[in-house]
Design a protein around this nucleic acid. Structure first.
Length: 588
RNA sequence: GGACCCGUAGCUUAAUUGGAUAGAGCAUCUGACUACGGAUCAGAAGGUUGGGGGUUCGACUCCCUUCGGGUCCA
């Protein structure tokens, strides 16, 4: 980092002294050199040929020569077209490595809330939730590592017509079944009745169609639907019987979710419940009306005109005074800010709600909430199956609990096939398979840019070789094994090294990148950056491992140097994987 | 009707935000000291970045248009 700014001002000096032109060193762009070329930093000269009035190649060569003279760490340079590749001396990297400390120095970046998961309490979690949960948790970890105080929040959708559907189906067809009586996980049990409702409802529609009723009317008039709507009205009126049933079934679901969250390794600091927050926001609608941000239509409904922003008019309160989704989201945003005063607030929500959040943030801004600038929708694409979209009502989903269990089985089979289960107790085996199976799953999902839809084929289990979680975990385990064998070695001993091999210098450079990569991942909310880095780091180490001997090296200084390389690599891998929510096995 | 997202090798995907010869993994093929752990490493092959136009020193990236997949708003 230091060196980069140093080189930039060197380039500015070069331009001043060679061409008599002033440029601000801050505005110069210095890129890291493409691995296919020799060098460490690359300065792209094309934009500056109008200052030098020379060919790009000549400009690059002149600036390169100037830097080599004026900056001692610059060992040499090469020019390809207008690209100036600046080569830094090995000595510089070795010095940096000698004083290298692990971790990140940045502190007190501010306070941020990450809202994620946000499940409905009428069915168990599925693959889509897994993507959401992993993203939310990982981004929280990354932000925390880069110095933020993070509040992990979960807004639970625990009321509404869909909840009433499960409740009603249970009431009609459940015969008093409970998680205890059936041995079924609570969320799965409730989900079963959600599916049952749909089945019965469809039957009723079919019956009505047969009597000559048209489709739209049939969907509206089916007795079950009318009953569900009546139940929702009673819930809102506080009917004792309905509320008691609602509490009981929600409690089952929460017990189930707790297990899933624990297995998935995610957690929360704060829970919000929609049964509390759905009443919020109406006061802010009043505020907006008096400020002239909103307007009323003839039917008394309240709207905001966003046509200036290229959007439509948006309803924010119905004519009968009842809320719409955005009403409560406005209120909840205010509630969150009042409670925590976070500078930033991130919503991890699927991209089908892109428009919704665009409108929500715009409304809050127009209401004059200065904190609205810190709001961000971390949008992600749907997870598709080969058969198409997952539909929970039709039961065509990949269940979160099942998927995790399948991954653990796959990890077990692979490990046993390699014959690496010897000398492990049953408890250790279980822990190992869990670490590897979930590691593969988390890595697989977070490796992909969130914006993209992803295809998941349950038939082809997730790879355990190549660019995968277990690959990185293997690198870690292998280093740990080396340290177990190096017990009479003074691991913390100082060493003096004058020069390094290419594989060693490359690994040093990667290790020194850690902080910059984490900060980049934090500013773009992207776990994928950490994953890509962890892979590169593991590869750089594996290359070194095949290139040179470490424990078998006879030269003490070299041996200690390489042991420190290995130790720092392992520690950095562990940090990276913890940001993804992954564990590192000591052996595998 | 209007708006947004996605399209890269057979498959899963990356590209330092406009930079170099589009980079990996899986699958396929070849090789690695009698393996400090082979879930590794080195290499080969695989591409008109959906199609067409434009902007410029330079386009997977920006603009226009068109095709395909998906989503949202009323």
């Amino acid at each position: 980092m230091q060196l980069e700014t140093y080189i930039k001002s060197g380039i500015a000096e070069a331009i001043a002294s060679l061409y008599g032109e002033t440029v601000d060193a801050e505005t110069l762009k210095l890129e890291s050199t493409n691995p296919d070329f020799k060098g460490d930093f690359t300065f792209v000269c094309f934009p500056y040929v109008r200052l030098s009035k020379k060919k790009p190649e000549d400009t690059a060569a002149e600036i390169g020569a100037f830097l080599k003279e004026s900056i001692q760490q610059v060992d040499g340079f090469n020019v390809v077209k207008g690209f100036l590749n600046i080569e830094i001396s090995d000595a510089y990297w070795l010095e940096r490595f000698a004083v290298h400390v692990l971790g990140i120095s940045r502190k007190n970046s501010g306070k941020v809330m990450v809202e994620y998961s946000s499940p409905n309490t009428n069915k168990p979690l599925h693959l889509g939730h897994i993507r959401n949960n992993l993203l939310g948790y990982s981004v929280s970890q990354i932000l925390a590592a880069s110095g933020y105080e993070v509040v992990k929040a979960n807004l639970i959708n625990d009321r509404g017509i869909h909840i009433c559907k499960s409740m009603l189906a249970w009431k009609h067809y459940g015969k008093g079944e409970t998680p205890e009586s059936s041995g079924m996980k609570g969320d799965h049990l409730v989900g079963k009745y959600y599916v049952e409702f749909d089945k019965q409802y469809k039957q009723q529609i079919a019956d009505l169609l047969a009597t000559g009723v048209d489709k739209e009317a049939a969907e509206k008039e089916a007795p079950l639907m009318k009953e569900a709507q009546e139940m929702l009205r009673q819930w809102e009126a506080g009917n004792d019987e309905v509320i008691t049933l609602w509490k009981m079934m929600n409690a089952w679901v929460y017990q189930g979710f707790d297990v899933t969250y624990k297995n998935l390794g995610v957690e929360f600091d704060k829970f919000y419940y929609e049964s509390n927050t759905y009443v919020l926001g109406k006061d802010l609608i009043e505020e907006g009306l008096s400020k002239g941000v909103f307007f009323k239509k003839a039917d008394n409904s309240v709207w905001i005109d966003l046509t200036d922003e290229g959007l439509d008019e948006k309803l924010v309160l119905r004519g009968d005074g009842t809320s719409v989704y955005i009403t409560q989201d406005i209120g909840t945003a205010q509630l969150k800010y009042d409670e925590y005063h976070c500078q930033k607030s991130i919503y991890v929500v699927g991209n089908e709600q892109d428009y919704h959040f665009k409108v929500l943030f715009l409304i809050l801004k127009k209401l004059g909430k200065e904190w609205s600038d810190g709001l961000h929708h971390l949008s992600y694409g749907m997870v598709d199956l080969p058969s198409g979209k997952m539909k929970s009502r039709e039961g065509t989903v990949v269940d979160a609990d099942d998927l995790m269990a399948d991954m653990i089985v796959a990890a077990r089979e692979k490990t046993e096939e390699l014959g690496k289960t010897d000398n492990l107790s049953d408890a250790e085996k279980t822990e190992l398979y869990t670490t590897l199976g979930l590691g593969a799953l988390k890595f697989f999902i977070l490796k992909v840019d969130p914006q993209k839809r992803m295809l998941f084929n349950p038939e082809e289990s997730i790879d355990l070789q190549g660019d995968t979680g277990p690959f990185v975990q293997y690198t870690y385990a292998r280093i740990q094994s080396m340290f177990r064998a190096a017990q009479n070695e003074d691991v913390n001993a100082k060493f003096t090294i004058e020069s390094g091999r290419e594989s060693e210098i490359n690994l040093i450079k990667k290790l020194l990148d850690y902080e910059a990569e984490v900060l980049k991942a934090a500013s773009t909310y992207s776990p994928a950056i950490i994953i890509a880095y962890a892979l590169q780091l593991a590869k750089a180490f594996n290359r070194l491992y095949n290139d040179v001997s470490i424990l078998k090296e006879s030269n003490v200084e070299l041996r200690r140097f390489r042991l420190k390389l290995a130790g720092d690599t392992a520690a950095t891998i562990k940090q990276c994987l913890s940001l993804i929510g992954m564990q590192c096995p000591e052996r595998m």
